[in-house]
Structure formats: structure tokens, C-alpha cells
Design a protein around this nucleic acid. Structure first.
Length: 436
RNA sequence: GUGGCCGUAGCUCAGCCCGGUUAGAGCGCCAGGUUGUGGCCCUGGAGGUCGGGGGUUCAAGUCCCCUCGGCCACCCCA
């Protein structure tokens, strides 16, 4: 361990590099997004799965020993029992591990909203701790399940108001197709070695497919006639992919085929896809992606079991919502604000009574002025204000005032005020009483 | 990991190039104008280690070096 600082620390603490706090009102937007996602996918039969934030590192290295995520971005550590663990870099591997461990009935359809960790240099839409919404469907190889999963993500984006999203689709074929294609593309690239950008040339041996989606002009020009994986699929691979495309057309989801779409994790087979936002200027325009991983469960010690899923970054989705001007933070949900300029007993007691009656009630503290309390009441979004000043206190009444519409104001017996407020709120459209 | 730009009030920023009295603005916050009533307006107030450390200088927010942090691009990905 490093030595403690000699003098008391004076620099204020900050969140670690690449992490951030999500505070109100932005956090309300997060809650709303997750709630919308939960409603959406639960309607399709997906149940919530909560898996640990760290696993034995082997769970994640199955994603591909050669991938950047495994090679240089893993937050791994030894615990006090010398176990080699890692913070999860993505959601799928943990879910697959849980499947192997518990062997639930298939198809096992689950969703999650969980943080992921990657040691990267932060940027807009890229963090060391980011959060993903995702689903996994394990135990069926039916291409119609691919359609269901893709449609789930597509429709979710539409439901929250996003319009400028493009679905990019590719297929890796069967595991054998993929292996064969990797050999083909490597031989092809070895022949082009001199023409490639040096940075790409280095990847040919270990990661030939990575070269395909290079952004470097030199490389792009050199590999224009590279063999396409979709031209090299086996009959089985073709049949699966065609059924998926037919399904997407049938349910009205447009897509663009991109034979060079290569995803960063090695476990994918058959369908792979990304959702790209046309509204994002940043380099991080992929807001969601996923695919089939028919070999992953087996590689984690389970029986041969197919699976498919997607992950979508909450931060990036919200960034896209900003860019498209949709899905704003929900307004504060205070219904009643209690203003008390007569000592504070009424504010203390009335807010409690209101809350116990299922009414969202707020108040000010520290004996602020009437004006200040009214200001807070306004900002809270409350439609009703209950005012207790010396006059009301003496008379045993409460002044009930409507903040919007006609500003009517009337006096109510203290003992009846909660019932009166409840009645007024029941008449308003967006009140949902939720008594304890 | 590589490269570029940038760190001044809670937030957004001016001041830095050409060093020199108590470091400014807008927004936000608090109070008052309106001795019991929000939004608009007016007035006043609080709030600053000028990211941190070192150096140059009679003098550093301003010049130099280091460091930390942020943003952006590469890389990679959500």
C-alpha cells in the first residue's frame, strides 16, 4: 500500500476519471428511461436479471482473448483470497454465466439495466463506468428470435421518440463459417499487406476482420474487393440470415446490410447488428448493438446452447435524445406544497399527513419568508399550496390555494384539509393516489 | 496508449497576447421593494485556494516548467 499523505488533504475529492454522478433532475430522466425499457421488454416476456458487478476473469476472457475489451480495458484485480476477478465490461457474459449456473427453462428471456466498466480514455459518450440496458434470450436458435430481439430495441428507440436511428445488419454465419472466413480474409489481406495502412497491417495476423471496418482511406481503397462474409456463408448460415431479413421486412423494420460490420467481441455467430444514431456528431454514434452468440454458453462450461441479445448505452441514448430534442426529464411530481409562516408545526404535521394519504407533499425548512416559500412552491411544480400563517393558526384553518388556472383560494378547517386536498387532486387528471 | 485544445464564483464565460490599485458579467442562490402570497421587474447581498505545485519578477489570473483534471480526435466501443 502507498503511504498516507503527510498533511491533511485539502484538495476536494472528485469522482474518478471517466465516471460521473447523475443528479436530479437528470437522474429522474434515467429512472424514466429505465422504467420505459422495463415496461417495453416485460411486455415481450423478459424478466429482470440482477447479476454481480464482478466475476472470475475467465467469464469475460471468453469474449475473445484478442479483443481490446479483454486485452487492455479490463478492470481486473486480485481479491483478499487471491481470486482473479474483473469488473464486468459488458452484460452478456455475466448473463450467460448465470444461465450455465442455474440452467433455467429455455428460452430464457431476461433484461438488465446495469453498469459496465472499461479502462479507456474518456470522451463524449464514453466512460470508464457506463450503463447498459440490455436483453438476452438464451436457449433458442430460431431466427425469429433474432427478429424479436432486434425489434425490441428498434421499437424501444421509437417509443422514447428517437427518429434518426439506422439498423445496420450483418451475419457471421455458423461458427465454422466464421472460422473459415477468418482464414480466407487473412490470406487475402496478407496479399495486400504492402497496400494497407501500417496500423491496419499490424492487425492482419491476430485480427483480420478488424481491418475490414478500418476508417483509414488507404486501407479502404486497398480492400475494396475483399471477400464478403455474406458471400461465403454455408447453406445453414444463409438460411438463418434470410429468415431474419424476411422477418424484419415483415414487421416493418428497415435495415442496411453491412458485410463489413465487425463487432468487438469474438463470440458472435450468425446475426450481428448495430443501431447507429444519425443525430450524434461524436465518434460514438453507436447507441446499441448485439448479436447471436451460439458458442458462448458452452465456452463457459454449459451445454451447447444458442443465445442472442443486445446492449444499449444509457448515456449515449440520452445524448441522442438531447440531440433529437426528445425524452426530456420528467417534471417534479410534488402535488402539494405546505407554506408555514407560523412556527413550523403545521408544515411538519401536514406534510406527514398528506404523504401518509398517498399525496406527494413538500415544504420548506429554516423558517423562510412567505415570498421565499411561495417561490419554492412554484418551483416544486405543486398545483396546490396550503398556507398556514398566524391568522390560520389562530382560526384553526388552512388556506388552500390553486397555483395554476384560476387562482382560487379558500379557507378549510384544519381537521378536514387532507380530505379536501385528496378530493381536489382526484379531480385532476394526472394524480395517482398511492396510500401506504 | 498517442496527439490537439482547454481549466477564473454553484453554472456559462470575459480578463491572459502587451504582468501593476479591493478579479468582473450573465444565470442561479439569499434578502428587500410588496409589514401574508410564486412566475415578470427593480435594488442590495452572499459566494472565488483564478485546478494544484514550483519557477521568473519589485509585482503573476496574466510569462515559463511540471502535474492533475476536462473536452476532442485516433484506437475501441455502449
Amino acid at each position: 500500500m502507498s503511504e498516507p499523505p503527510a498533511t491533511p488533504r485539502t484538495e476536494p475529492f472528485k469522482a474518478p476519471v471517466g465516471t460521473r454522478d447523475v443528479l436530479p433532475p437528470e437522474s429522474a430522466r434515467w429512472q424514466a428511461l429505465i422504467a420505459a425499457f422495463a415496461t417495453h421488454v416485460e411486455r415481450a416476456g423478459y424478466g429482470l436479471v440482477q447479476s454481480p458487478m464482478f466475476e472470475e476473469i475467465g467469464v469475460f476472457t471468453r469474449m475473445g482473448e484478442g479483443t481490446d475489451v479483454v486485452r487492455k480495458e479490463m478492470y481486473d484485480f486480485l481479491d483478499k483470497g487471491d481470486r482473479h476477478l474483473a469488473l464486468r465490461p459488458e452484460g452478456t457474459a455475466s448473463v450467460a454465466r448465470a444461465f450455465v449456473q442455474h440452467r433455467p427453462p429455455t428460452p430464457w428471456k431476461v433484461w438488465y439495466a446495469a453498469p459496465s466498466f472499461r479502462y479507456e480514455r474518456p470522451q463524449a459518450g464514453r466512460y470508464r463506468q457506463h450503463h447498459q440496458l440490455g436483453v438476452e434470450a438464451v436457449g433458442s436458435a430460431d431466427p425469429d428470435l433474432d427478429v424479436e430481439v432486434i425489434a425490441l430495441l428498434w421499437d424501444f428507440y421509437a417509443a422514447i421518440g428517437l427518429r434518426r436511428v439506422e439498423l445496420v445488419l450483418n451475419s457471421m454465419g455458423t461458427a465454422a463459417d466464421r472460422r473459415r472466413y477468418i482464414d480466407d480474409i487473412r490470406s487475402y489481406l496478407v496479399g495486400k499487406l504492402g497496400e494497407l495502412d501500417p496500423t491496419d497491417a499490424e492487425k492482419v495476423e491476430a485480427h483480420p476482420m478488424r481491418v475490414l471496418d478500418s476508417k483509414r482511406p488507404v486501407t479502404i481503397a486497398a480492400i475494396a474487393d475483399a471477400p464478403r462474409i455474406t458471400d461465403r456463408l454455408s447453406d445453414e448460415g444463409v438460411a438463418h440470415f434470410e429468415r431474419v431479413q424476411a422477418g424484419l421486412r415483415a414487421v416493418g423494420i428497415p435495415f442496411r446490410l453491412e458485410p463489413r460490420l465487425v463487432r468487438g467481441l469474438d463470440y458472435y455467430t450468425h446475426t450481428t447488428f448495430e443501431m447507429v444514431s444519425g443525430a450524434l456528431d461524436a465518434a460514438q454514434s453507436t447507441i446499441g448493438g448485439g448479436g447471436r452468440y451460439d458458442g458462448l454458453v458452452e465456452s463457459l462450461g454449459g451445454p451447447p446452447t444458442p443465445g442472442i441479445g443486445f446492449g444499449s448505452g444509457i448515456e449515449r441514448v440520452l445524448l441522442t435524445c438531447d440531440a433529437e430534442g426528445v425524452f426530456p426529464a420528467p417534471p417534479p411530481r410534488t402535488e402539494v406544497y405546505v407554506v408555514d409562516t407560523a412556527g413550523g408545526d403545521s408544515a411538519r404535521d401536514l406534510t406527514q399527513q398528506l404523504r401518509r394519504a398517498g399525496i406527494a407533499a413538500e415544504r420548506a425548512f429554516d423558517g423562510r419568508s412567505m415570498k421565499s416559500q411561495m417561490k419554492s412552491a412554484d418551483r416544486s411544480g405543486a398545483g396546490l399550496v396550503l398556507i398556514v400563517g398566524p391568522d390560520e393558526l389562530a382560526a384553526g384553518t388552512v388556506t388552500v390555494r390553486a397555483m395554476r388556472g384560476e387562482r382560487q383560494q379558500h379557507h378549510v378547517e384544519r381537521a378536514a384539509v387532507v380530505a379536501v386536498v385528496a378530493e381536489l387532486l382526484d379531480a385532476s387528471p394526472d394524480h395517482v393516489a398511492a396510500p401506504l
